[in-house]
């Protein structure tokens, strides 16, 4: 089947939308929580909607709403926002070589849309390469932005009618989404090591109330995954020095 350019583009629009759809639905409770919490903490409707519109960050919004409501200093609010957002530096670095070559509007646009969710869908080795994959990323990231806005606005409108949602366990929706995204990507030992180390350290650092818990746990886990892979390669190279060609082949296939 030969596709015209237009048909191919339409197909990518559809795929981008459908791939992001479960994530768009999963942040419904979280978005409503953000919107309604802002209203309950005496933000104006305009301020409450400006948050998802320009800040566009779930956990940073939520924490900042509580901080602002408690009259925290501007420096505290901004520093906390920076700490929570600092994981995005890793996303930018990981995608740097693919995104830095794009024309300016694409770069700014995709940069703005680069959430945890879009990053989670950007694992393909050719992600963002070529116009069709850009369309895919734009629709996936853009639809996430629109849904996030929609859920927040819903929360703002429902705001004062809703009870305090902060202790209902809505954060489980986020956890289960990331479980669904991460577990199937564990296809080899280095990734398994990465996931286990990240899980253990993130819990440990959280219990220690270490501010950079997330990023520190992730960085150390990445390094452990990297070392595991290096070790595997060394081991397979060493065994190939002997006569055991079969072992080498098996190790390589892993």
């Amino acid at each position: 089947m030969v596709l015209t350019k237009k048909q191919a583009r339409l197909l990518m629009v559809k795929k981008g939308f459908l791939d992001m759809l479960p994530l768009n639905l999963a942040v419904l409770p979280w978005g409503i929580l953000c919107g309604s919490l802002a209203i309950q903490r005496d933000f104006s409707a305009f301020e409450a909607i400006l948050m998802p519109l320009i800040v566009f960050a779930g956990s940073a919004q939520l924490v900042a709403i509580e901080l602002i409501a408690n009259n925290a200093s501007l420096a505290t609010i901004l520093f906390t926002t920076f700490i929570i957002s600092s994981r995005h530096f890793l996303y930018g670095l990981a995608l740097r070589d693919k995104l830095k070559v794009l024309p300016t509007p694409w770069r700014y646009g995709l940069g703005f849309l680069l959430t945890d969710e879009l990053f989670a869908l950007s694992g393909h080795s050719k992600a963002f390469v070529g116009q069709l994959r850009l369309v895919y990323a734009l629709v996936a990231g853009g639809s996430f932005y629109l849904f996030w806005l929609l859920w927040n606005v819903t929360g703002v409108i429902a705001g004062s009618y809703l009870p305090d949602l902060t202790h209902l366990g809505l954060d489980f929706a986020i956890a289960v989404t990331f479980i669904a995204l991460v577990i199937p990507t564990i296809i080899n030992l280095p990734i398994l090591v990465t996931v286990i180390v990240a899980g253990l350290l993130s819990v440990l650092f959280k219990l220690m109330a270490f501010e950079l818990d997330l990023v520190a746990a992730a960085l150390i886990a990445m390094y452990c995954g990297y070392l595991t892979e290096r070790f595997q390669q060394k081991y397979s190279a060493a065994s190939s020095d002997g006569h055991n060609g079969d072992t080498r082949q098996i190790l390589k296939d892993k």
Partner: peptide, 21 residues
């Protein structure tokens, strides 16, 4: 190569504490 492990590392460091802490 190191950065290729960033997705499983960061996403896991987000969801595991939600479960345990």
């Amino acid at each position: 190569k190191l950065l290729s492990f960033s997705a499983p590392a960061v996403l896991t460091a987000i969801w595991v504490p939600i479960i345990f802490v």
